[in-house]
């Protein structure tokens, strides 16, 4: 959020659009660059899901809240879509929309009381929400399949295209990922994002300029939860098997770790964090429990020594290597003109 307003309204839209297009082109070409290697495609799909989860969670963070109910809403999407498929025979296309709607509805109802709480209390209350969601899946065995979960949630077909093919599913997950990142990025860049951050920075001031803070808090929570639910639907049809444990607090916590390691102040943070940590996670998989220890160490090192996360590295490098603060002149002029007058 530290970037300056001139880059917001008078940014060079063509350059931004070009970067986006280049990124998407690279993602489109990726399966052929790796010769459709199945394992690498799998990792890419997991990376996409993690990006979706972290980015949508970051949207709630932009108002100053960390929701530990996030994986729960992913679960709501997954179970809704799975049940649509298993009970009604409707493919993912219906399930993902139904999941988003059910997720949004529950998120809206829950967030009305939830958003009355603040800071520590919000964190714990959202944790309780996540636990209740998970345990309801486990408790109603007949409907949700209990701790064993639901099986045979098959990927959809579209005309001649069968998404059981991993390359096809890669593109499906990629579409969702690009959609979510694009929505969150746009929201954050425009007035909606300013309103969110203004609530984060000083809720009392924003309400005194006429911003109905609760309305925006509920809206952000609902949108983010609906996006998480869509991710859940795709997750269910990819793995073809889900159980309550896939959506417990650890999933939310890993998404939070992705955000913190990636960086908290722009939408690039969760993306970088999810990509970096998911790849590390895959590389360390053979080490079993050591990989969780290493995760913890990375998290602590980031918090203590790189509090801006990965996204702050370019700026730090610029400052270190060239010793060029971007706004040296203005800094100096302010310090010179008012350094003494300050009381």
């Amino acid at each position: 959020m530290n970037e300056k307003s001139k880059t917001l309204l008078r940014n060079r839209p063509s350059l931004v659009v070009l970067l986006w297009l280049a990124g998407i082109a690279l993602l489109l070409a990726f399966p052929f660059l790796i010769n459709q290697e199945r394992y690498i495609l799998h990792v890419a799909i997991v990376v996409f899901f993690n990006i979706c989860l972290a980015t949508s969670m970051w949207l709630i963070w932009s108002l100053g809240f960390v929701s530990f109910a996030h994986a729960g809403f992913m679960g709501i999407g997954a179970y809704t879509s799975a049940l649509f498929f298993l009970r009604l025979g409707l493919p993912l296309w219906f399930g993902v929309i139904a999941g988003a709607l059910v997720g949004a509805l529950i998120a809206m109802v829950v967030s009305l009381p939830l958003m009355r709480t603040r800071a520590v209390y919000f964190f714990m209350a959202s944790w309780a929400v996540g636990e209740v969601i998970k345990r309801i899946f486990a408790y109603y065995r007949g409907f949700f399949g209990g701790w064993e979960g639901l099986f045979r949630i098959m990927p959809p077909k579209l005309g001649p295209l069968d998404f059981a093919n991993r390359t096809a599913y890669y593109y499906l997950a990629m579409v969702l990922m690009v959609l979510i990142v694009l929505v969150v990025y746009r929201l954050n860049k425009t007035r909606t994002g300013w309103i969110f951050w203004s609530i984060h920075e000083a809720e009392v001031l924003s309400s005194h300029v006429g911003i109905h803070a609760l309305k925006y808090k509920v809206a952000a929570f609902t949108i983010a939860s609906a996006l998480a639910a869509m991710t859940g639907a795709l997750y269910a049809h990819y793995h073809t098997y889900i159980n309550p444990k896939s959506f417990d607090i650890w999933t939310s916590e890993f998404a939070l770790v992705h955000i913190i390691v990636g960086g908290l102040s722009t939408a690039a943070g969760p993306v970088l964090g999810a990509v970096f940590l998911t790849i590390i996670d895959e590389l360390l998989r053979p080490t079993e429990f050591y990989r969780i220890v290493i995760f913890g160490v990375i998290l602590i090192l980031t918090v203590l020594f790189l509090p801006g996360g990965l996204e702050s590295i370019p700026k730090r490098l610029r400052l270190r290597l060239w010793k060029l603060p971007e706004d040296k002149d203005t800094q100096k002029s302010i310090a010179g003109a008012f350094g003494k007058g300050r009381k």
């Binding site: 220890v293 998290l299 602590i300």
Partner: peptide
């Protein structure tokens, strides 16, 4: 600093201590 940072450290401690 923001409460989130100390929360993150305690979260990391869970990862480290329980896996170790």
């Amino acid at each position: 600093k923001d409460m989130l940072y100390s929360l993150a450290v305690s979260l990391a401690l869970i990862f480290i201590i329980s896996s170790a």
